[in-house]
């Protein structure tokens, strides 16, 4: 059976909030190392990869591999009943028809309990190759969201150029052009505001802003986001969580005609 307790329901609430507009039905794959999810959006342009490691739960127990087939809209309805600060326990039998969720308030003795029906989901799993990216940019997640939303007001696409001069996000639209350039920057007092650019070779790629803005719904999970680029491969946008857990988004580039 599976029993996994999070100290704060907000972690799962934020993860599901961040991906529910991209993915509707997906398996939560549970094994002794934790709970993982991999799913493509309907148009097969983006891929979501989540790993909540066993260490992120206390306690964590999973005797056999279990796939929890979940409709994320339904899961959202149940998670809405949890306060951010509640402790959240997920429970399931080895061949479950439903997922049991228990929310416990730390402040009082309130315990709420829900059973969510599961579904059989036949999901295609993709092998994601280990990639040495040409450019890795770590920046405040709020900054990345701001850049994406600002540029989306002008255009459907953004071109990301990483060079020794910095990283430039630029777009061209009917009403005009826009560009934001960031350079490496260290804030000793507030490291969450740092911008770090690691570059082994210059990169230039174009992506759909609609998807990037969607990924930015994960900004609540982490102060910083890491974006990794190499020419002619999908962009990786990673929000790191505690205990090596993470939420990653991959986005296929736009390519020349």
């Amino acid at each position: 059976m599976l029993e996994a307790k999070l100290d704060q329901a907000s972690i799962l609430k934020k993860v599901v909030d961040a991906i529910k507009d991209l993915v509707q039905d997906c398996n939560f794959d549970c094994n002794d190392s934790g709970i993982a999810l991999q799913a493509m959006d309907n148009s097969h342009v983006a891929l979501v990869s989540m790993a909540l490691k066993a260490e992120s739960f206390q306690p964590y127990r999973c005797d056999r591999n279990i796939a929890l087939g979940l409709n994320l809209t339904s899961l959202t309805k149940v998670l809405r009943a949890a306060q951010n600060e509640d402790m959240l326990t997920l429970r399931a039998e080895d061949a479950p028809d439903s997922l049991n969720l228990v929310f416990e308030s730390k402040a009082d003795d309130r315990i709420s309990e829900y059973d969510l029906k599961l579904m059989d989901i036949d999901q295609e799993h993709l092998g994601i190759p280990e990639t040495e990216y040409a450019a890795t940019i770590t920046l405040p997640s709020s900054e990345f969201r701001r850049i994406c939303t600002d540029l989306m007001a002008l255009s459907e696409s953004v071109t990301i150029d990483a060079s020794k001069d910095g990283v430039k996000f630029s777009c061209t639209g009917d009403i005009g052009n826009g560009a934001v350039t960031l350079r490496s920057h260290t804030n000793v007092d507030k490291p969450e505001l740092n911008v770090d650019i690691e570059l082994s070779e210059p990169v230039s790629l174009t992506f759909s802003l609609k998807y990037l803005v969607n990924f930015c719904k994960a900004s609540a999970l982490s102060h910083q986001v890491k974006i990794c680029l190499s020419n002619e491969v999908p962009l990786l946008v990673e929000y790191a969580l505690e205990n090596q857990s993470h939420l990653r988004f991959y986005l296929a580039p736009k390519i020349g005609d």
């Binding site: 097969h44 092998g127 255009s155």
Partner: peptide, 14 residues
Amino acid sequence: EGTQSNITRYFEGA
């Protein structure tokens, strides 16, 4: 602005 490519072009089915 180019054509949107598909993620399955880069990642293989397991």
